[in-house]
Computed example of a mutant assay.
Amino acid sequence: MTSTTSKGIPYPQSTDHTRLWEHFQNLAQAADGLMFGNVDRQVFTSSGTWTRPAGAIMVHVRVQAGGGGSGGVPSTGSGQAACAAGGSGGEYAEGWLTPATTGASVAVTVGTGGAGGPAGNNSGSDGGSSSFGSLITCNGGGGSAGMSATSSSASVGASNGGQGGVGGDLHLPGGDGGNGQVIAGLPVKYNNGGASMLGSMRRASGVSATTTTGFTGYSYGGGASGPANGASQSAVAGSPGAPGIVIVTTYTA
């Protein structure tokens, strides 16, 4: 009589008269079915459905939410300026799952980047959430506020970093957006977009003292940097955050 371990590897009992070569053959075949042999990788840059490949042993999932958009700035008068802050990066998570946990297929949601605020003192939108079914979820980065025309004020960058997702083995919030500030009628431009795990920090708007737009967040999941206005300039819209991504790697027999 042959018994098996909890992972399905057979071994002979004392009353088993199986010949040694037969036992070793069974042992090799059983172990072969538990060892990683091939890799199947499915990359989602838009929402869809993951289908479990044949012979799956373990599934590694990486989920990145979208980054936040930056706010806009209004037109300015003489001696005024405006400098909107940057959006924050989206949350990231990853985890190892068994085929029994995933089931045969899983709905995948990829969060879009948050829209930039319209021209004027208008906030940018939050980035979209990304998820691997209900097993791993991540929240999008925060959109930043706009700024009114002023001679001296500050606009604080989005700081929620897309926290609060669930599932998986690891969660990392996105980086905060940089602040916008006006001092003595001049915009101080350190209004960078926040980084994400899969997207670098986006540099602040340009060094010009007139009108400068922000920059779209870096893929994947980075926040947008904010726009800025010097004196006597027209209103400028904010910029969008970067979309997220979901990467599912399955190790098969």
Score class of each variant (00 low, 15 high):
residue 3 S to E: 14
residue 6 S to G: 14
residue 7 K to R: 11
residue 10 P to E: 04
residue 12 P to E: 08
residue 20 L to R: 11
residue 20 L to Y: 10
residue 22 E to Q: 11
residue 24 F to R: 14
residue 30 A to L: 08
residue 31 A to E: 11
residue 43 V to N: 14
residue 52 R to N: 02
residue 58 M to C: 06
residue 58 M to A: 15
residue 59 V to N: 06
residue 66 G to I: 02
residue 69 G to H: 07
residue 69 G to Q: 06
residue 73 V to M: 08
residue 75 S to C: 08
residue 79 G to W: 03
residue 81 A to C: 07
residue 81 A to S: 15
residue 83 C to N: 15
residue 85 A to G: 12
residue 87 G to C: 14
residue 98 T to W: 06
residue 100 A to Y: 13
residue 107 A to D: 09
residue 115 A to C: 04
residue 116 G to F: 02
residue 116 G to I: 02
residue 119 A to H: 01
residue 123 S to D: 13
residue 124 G to N: 11
residue 127 G to S: 13
residue 128 G to W: 01
residue 129 S to Q: 14
residue 132 F to M: 05
residue 135 L to D: 01
residue 138 C to I: 06
residue 140 G to M: 04
residue 141 G to V: 06
residue 143 G to E: 06
residue 143 G to C: 12
residue 147 M to F: 02
residue 151 S to H: 03
residue 156 V to A: 11
residue 158 A to I: 00
residue 166 V to H: 09
residue 172 L to F: 07
residue 173 P to T: 12
residue 177 G to W: 14
residue 180 G to H: 03
residue 180 G to I: 00
residue 183 I to D: 14
residue 183 I to R: 12
residue 183 I to G: 05
residue 187 P to T: 10
residue 188 V to K: 05
residue 190 Y to A: 10
residue 191 N to T: 14
residue 191 N to S: 14
residue 192 N to Y: 15
residue 193 G to H: 09
residue 193 G to D: 11
residue 206 G to H: 06
residue 216 T to H: 05
residue 218 Y to S: 15
residue 221 G to L: 03
residue 223 G to F: 13
residue 232 S to V: 09
residue 232 S to L: 06
residue 233 Q to S: 10
residue 234 S to L: 15
residue 234 S to K: 09
residue 239 S to K: 11
residue 239 S to T: 13
residue 243 P to F: 03
residue 249 T to V: 15
residue 251 Y to S: 00
residue 252 T to F: 01
residue 252 T to I: 09
residue 253 A to V: 10
